[in-house]
Design a protein around this nucleic acid. Structure first.
Lengths: 146, 146
DNA sequence: GAGGATATGCAAGCAACTCGCATTTGTCAA
DNA sequence: TTGACAAATGCGAGTTGCTTGCATATCCTC
């Protein structure tokens, strides 16, 4: 919450209370958040920001490269701070749980694409969808219980 | 357009004109389409289907596993026939061109996730975003010309 | 502290998608 | 072939995620 100010300044954005609070919410949260989650978190910290403003701030931060968009087949975007190490997501289709995975070498594939196809890869998204261990256990219990 | 009927029957769906036409559009098109593209294609074939109906059909086909959802950071879904070989997409952020890529072994990664994390992977999405060769050429010309 | 560029709130608007209900249409059995 | 019924469609209204215009408030520089 202190170097948020510098982070904003470094990309020529004014350090307003709304932006500082939003940025610190994203830095403190490990999972990607959608805009309504962001608004909830801000309210819990006593910061009341209009929905339109949240979208404007998020879009600015995204185009400055400070936050990343995450899509999980929910019909909306989530966002996470770009400062984290390269990682992807396991998304449980039953309960919505999200887990990070980091061990994958897409880098090699990106390099191949760049060399063979002359396509300049700027970013990518890789998400796995399925059922998490907890939900699998629940399902097994449900089946056994009848 | 002939075995579309059987395809629908095989998942207990009535073979209505709208569904048959929609399915054949998806089978004939190589790129993933969004709903308005689907509606346009249907109209060109003289089939007039309501927007709500297209969404209903697409959702049914998706939940029966006949079509796949594709997300390309456009704020909406695209769909493609699930019968195609496993592949992913190169999406040009400048002109919107989409190219398929097929050479990647995510399978190994999926297997690892299933074994190490007990997470049952049902599907995944991998999309690369960047600038395609044509757009890179245009950009170079634009820079050289001034 | 004042001035000017910029950020915000509010309200209206848009696009993707859903839902309820009356009508039409496949499908299957007789 | 036909008739009946479950299911599909069209239409209209509604919801949600997101954007925009404009007046007011705020941050930053001097």
């Amino acid at each position: 919450m202190h170097d948020c100010k510098n982070e904003l300044r470094s990309v020529d954005l004014k350090a307003t209370p709304a932006r500082l609070a939003l940025l610190s919410v994203l830095e403190e949260t490990e999972k990607p958040l959608d805009t309504s989650m962001i608004i909830d978190s801000l309210q819990k910290e006593g910061v009341d920001v209009d929905e339109a403003t949240v979208f404007r701030i998020i879009n600015l931060l995204h185009q400055k490269g400070i936050v990343k968009q995450v899509q999980l087949r929910e019909g909306k975007f989530r966002y996470e701070h770009a400062g984290k190490a390269e990682h992807h997501h396991l998304y449980c289709e039953a309960c919505g749980a999200i887990e990070d995975i980091s061990d994958c070498n897409i880098q090699r594939l990106e390099k191949e694409i760049r060399e063979k196809k002359q396509f300049l890869v700027k970013s990518h998204s890789l998400e796995f969808f399925g059922i998490c261990p907890a939900c699998r256990r629940l399902e097994r219990q449900r089946l056994a219980g009848r």
